[in-house]
Simulated assay, not measured.
Amino acid sequence: MDDEQDPRQRFAEECRSARDLFPERRLNQTELARMVRVSKSTISRVEICEGPIPPDLPPLLDQVFSTDGLFKRLYEQIAAGSFPAHSRRRMVLEPRAVAISAWSPTVVPGLLQTGAYARALFRAGDPRAGERELVHKVGARLARQDILRGSSPPDFSVVICESVLRRNVGGPEIMRNQLAALLLDGSQPTTVLQVLPFSAETHGLMDGSLSILTMPDGGTVLYTEGIRSGAIIEEAATVRQLSRAYDVLRASALSRDASADLIRELMEAS
């Protein structure tokens, strides 16, 4: 098929085609739904490009149809298309990374946001956004988090500025729930969450956020982001410089346990 075809449309067509060409016999929607443990209406909506695709459906379709990750790859392209153009390549690379390191000086990183926290950010960023648009944006952001909840999540290291924990996004209840979610996420064996305290000195990443993606081949890709812009960085010298700055930042942050204690203290005080 044409590589430029809309991935959502191709997902629907591949699903219909795979049903029609199933080796034993043609599958109807009800039979496929039973095999992938969803409702017939879900399969119907997927095949007419209506509504979101359940995040656990693509790998099940790949399993049933023996399509070697085709549906998973298309789903990643669909998910990436929900984000601004400047961050779409990152959204494609992120699910493939074997390790992710992140520094966030302003907000809770998207991979760790609750739905209510994300919604408050989107509402503040675009006060004229309609309800459907907000639901779509929040859903797309939360779908990214599937990579941390699968059977083989990447190693995840994240440093969050203390100001992020103290900033009242969405009100006390939303922040209390967000802090509780950070405690839970930070307790996962593949996640190391640290807080950079106000007492830390000047560092090399004060200008903005940074994500470091380590790919299966050992290559490293960096992503930096501003208010309405972002950039992928692959130039070796810059990657080395910024990765070193992140290492220094981690060394200046509170330990994993001390970070959890601070989050717990702020949650109980809110």
Rank of each mutant, 00 (worst) to 15 (best):
S163Y: 00
H136L: 05
P153G: 12
S209K: 03
I232M: 12
K137F: 00
I174W: 02
Y246N: 05
D207E: 13
R240M: 07
M206D: 09
D185Q: 12
T202M: 14
L142R: 09
V159Y: 08
L213M: 15
M175T: 12
Y246G: 06
Q178R: 06
E201V: 08
D247N: 14
E162G: 06
Q194G: 03
V159P: 10
Q188G: 03
T202L: 15
Q194C: 01
N168H: 15
P216I: 00
T238N: 09
L142T: 00
S243M: 08
I212C: 06
S229C: 11
S163L: 03
S229F: 07
G171M: 03
S243W: 06
M206G: 08
G208F: 03
L254F: 09
A251I: 11
R176T: 13
A236W: 01
K137E: 10
D247V: 11
V138W: 07
L210M: 07
R144G: 04
Q241A: 13
L134M: 12
D207W: 08
S259N: 02
I174T: 14
S259A: 04
A251Y: 07
E235P: 00
L213T: 03
G171Q: 02
C161I: 02
R149I: 00
D185C: 13
R228G: 14
I232G: 01
S151H: 14
V221P: 06
R144Y: 02
C161V: 07
V169S: 03
S187Y: 01
E162W: 09
I147C: 00
A236Y: 05
A143D: 10
L213S: 03
M175H: 10
D185L: 13
G170I: 11
A251P: 03
V221C: 02
S152R: 14
V221F: 02
Q178Y: 04
D185E: 14
S163I: 01
G219I: 06
G226S: 14
E162R: 08
A143H: 08
T220C: 12
A181S: 14
V158S: 04
V248P: 00
E234D: 15
P197G: 07
V135N: 09
S229E: 10
M215S: 10
S199N: 09
D207T: 13
